[in-house]
């Protein structure tokens, strides 16, 4: 058990190390000269040239040798200093990201967890029932084949533009000031429905298909047949099949996170939802390297942490991992 977690942790640490190195290299090895371009952009502002230059010298340390710059980057990373955004000048990157993070968590966490739970239930249902299977499967296939943003566009068109029951952009109305009061929360939820629904539906298809295939395999396996010949009830066999089939689905959750993040980005863009994806897009369009760096780093950290959490869950639900750790995980 300890060995399992230790092995995973080592991989995550190495990944983190690589990711940070890559992140450090982004603005330094970009084609063109981002710094002079950024200086040109701030020409109009008073003293701006000095401010930008000092910011760059401070966090880049460009006059120093590369290796010193590299260690300096790690140091500033651990003090939470990710530089200052150019596009949303003079906000700090860490500040922008922490603001966007709330929206991401509130949108993605329920969408991922609920679609996983509902998808597994529906998939298991259609795995054991031929009639349900024939009706549901094409539907799930279409869901999982549709690009996230396209499904979002579809929902926006029908519910936002045609029927006009839901707002189509932003996380709250323009007249609202974010705060912790009932009015704002209701307004937030009202804006939350469509982005949530589009993420939820597209993910749902994938989970349902995975579960359906696993259940069919498990129901055809030897232990199921043995139980059947012993005369145990269909319900009991299904229960055992489900418990075995859920394991690859948990692993799938970890493997899918990257794809989900990408899908969430495009969905956020459709809804102009102020999460990390939307910010990253703005940063890319404005070639705001500090912000791109910050977003990249932040996404990698989140996915790593989520992966680690999934690993712990996997260990808790699979006794085989808990009792002995050998070979494939």
């Amino acid at each position: 058990m300890g060995k399992y977690l230790r092995k995973k942790l080592i991989i995550y640490l190495i990944t983190f190390f690589f990711a940070v190195t890559l992140d450090w290299a982004i603005p330094r090895f970009m084609p063109g000269d981002p710094i002079s371009m950024l200086l040109a952009r701030f020409n109009g502002l008073e003293n701006s040239s000095d401010i930008v230059r000092s910011t760059f010298t401070k966090s880049f340390g460009l006059d120093q040798p590369l290796i010193t710059q590299y260690f300096g980057f790690w140091k500033s990373l651990f003090t939470g200093d990710l530089g200052i955004s150019i596009y949303l000048y003079p906000k700090k990157v860490s500040e922008i990201i922490s603001q966007a993070l709330i929206y991401d968590i509130l949108l993605l966490l329920p969408a991922i967890l609920l679609s996983w739970i509902v998808g597994n239930k529906l998939g298991a249902r259609s795995g054991v029932n031929k009639k349900v299977d024939n009706i549901m499967m094409p539907f799930f296939y279409v869901l999982t084949s549709s690009p996230y943003f396209w499904f979002a566009v579809l929902l926006v068109f029908f519910f936002g533009v045609k029927l006009q029951i839901f707002p189509v952009n932003g996380a709250y109305s323009n007249i609202m000031i974010p705060g912790f009061n009932i009015q704002f929360i209701l307004d937030f939820l009202y804006h939350w429905v469509l982005p949530f629904l589009s993420l939820f539906m597209v993910m749902l298809g994938g989970w349902a298909i995975g579960m359906r295939n696993m259940i069919i395999y498990e129901m055809g396996s030897n232990y199921s047949k043995y139980m059947e010949s012993l005369g145990s009830s269909e319900k009991l066999i299904r229960k055992y099949a489900f418990r075995n089939a859920i394991l690859p689905q948990v692993t799938g959750l970890a493997l899918q996170l990257g794809t989900i993040v990408a899908g969430a980005f495009t969905t956020e863009i459709v809804f102009s939802y102020p999460g990390i994806g939307y910010i990253l897009l703005k940063a890319l369009l404005n070639q705001d390297y500090f912000l791109i760096q910050g977003c990249f780093l932040f996404i990698v950290i989140c996915v790593l942490v989520a992966n680690f959490l999934v690993d712990i869950v996997y260990m808790l639900i699979d006794p085989r991992v808990r009792f002995s750790f050998s070979g494939e995980v």
Partner: peptide, 8 residues
């Protein structure tokens, strides 16, 4: 596998 492909 762990690094989100989209970021890359």
């Amino acid at each position: 596998l762990v690094i989100p492909t989209i970021a890359l």
